[in-house]
Amino acid sequence: MLLMQFRGLNCQALDANGVSLDEKILAIERLLLTPGTIMFPVTPCSFMLNGPQQTIPAQNGSDQTAAQWVRTVFHDFITADAAAGTGGLDASISFEADRPENLGLVFNAGTPDETSFINATIIGFNLFSSVFTSTSDFIALGLATSLLSCEPDARMIHLKVGRIDATVAGPTGVPRPQDSLDIATAAFAKAGLNQTEMIQAVDGRADHFDSTPFVFDAVGVNEYLNGSGQAGGPLVTTQNETFRSDLRIFDSDSNDTIKAMAASTQSFEDACFTVFEKMINTVPKTVTLSTDLVGPRPWILMESHLDLSSTGVVQYSGNITTNSRFNPSVPTTATYVYGTPGEDTVSQTSDGGGEY
């Protein structure tokens, strides 16, 4: 039996938990506007949920939470088979955390060691889990919130919902720093990204390796081109040339893509946001993502109550919350419409919280 939720003249299929796409969007929008939830681990951008707070670039691999959440998207997405319509952003990474290809590099005195960061990321998402949001939607949301916190204008990526979590591990194939350019290029091509998109994705993923590690900006690409500051990060400058994977990828088109990204802050952001959206929207062919996008809304009604007083007066009350980064003002009144569908309806507006 197919369960449906009616939405005006349209209807939506419900998932196995009886949740519609509209409800999933609303749940995420509530999280974005509820203090102490999904924005907390990445606010400020330098915040580190599972370790000491940082004041310098993360050269030792102890990335801030925002950087870990961006990397998790990359590691989950990259084993997709675009032609076959399998893999992509499906949270299979939850079963793959201890694979050598999913261990993050830690650079100590130029010698690369490896440690896990995936488990910490998934545990962070589980703090806010509910039946309304899959882990794979959380992984996409993690990218969105990281950009909201670290991008100076709080730009919101075009975020859809409806991802379905894998129940087993996916295939191997995450490019490793010691892999050749041919191996990396083949992996990105299989996942559906061309050479230009590969360079943009790798640079966006490594943006915190620059002199402004807690701001998502074009400083890193300019430092790479100029050989200044962090000069592109450890996977460009490490003493062990075998591990200079970012350098090989950036230089694969004679730095043309990097130069285009460095032209302006807008050019950098547009390139990264476009490829990031393609990555988070790469899902198994059996998954249908929402047409509507997640806000963020300037404010949201958290709860509402419609009651009758002892004298028979209708009372409408509730709580409205906002995120001051999006819009500092909160409405002082609310309006509701009542009546019989298809017949006359009546609209009533509150008067500063009073009865009406």
Rank of each mutant, 00 (worst) to 15 (best):
S180G: 15
G104W: 03
A218E: 15
G204T: 12
F216Q: 05
P100Q: 08
S136R: 03
S116F: 08
G192P: 11
G142H: 06
P171M: 05
A166T: 04
I183E: 11
E151K: 01
N108R: 14
A166L: 05
F128R: 05
G204A: 08
T121W: 00
A186I: 07
D113F: 15
M198D: 11
T212C: 02
T135V: 12
D182F: 04
I118N: 09
V174A: 05
F117D: 06
D165T: 07
G173I: 05
G110S: 08
F132S: 03
E101P: 04
A191Q: 09
V168H: 10
E101G: 08
G227W: 14
F128Q: 11
R176W: 09
A166Y: 04
D179I: 04
R163H: 09
S116P: 13
E197N: 11
N102K: 06
G104E: 07
S149G: 04
P177E: 12
T212S: 14
G204H: 07
N194L: 09
R155S: 03
I118E: 10
R176M: 15
S180I: 10
V168L: 11
N222D: 13
I157C: 06
D153N: 12
F107H: 02
V131I: 13
D179V: 10
F117P: 00
A186E: 13
P171K: 03
K160I: 03
P100K: 02
G220S: 14
K160W: 02
R163E: 08
N126F: 08
K160R: 15
V221E: 14
C150N: 05
L181C: 01
L193Q: 09
G104R: 02
L147N: 02
A166G: 00
I123P: 00
S146P: 01
T185R: 15
G173D: 02
D210H: 06
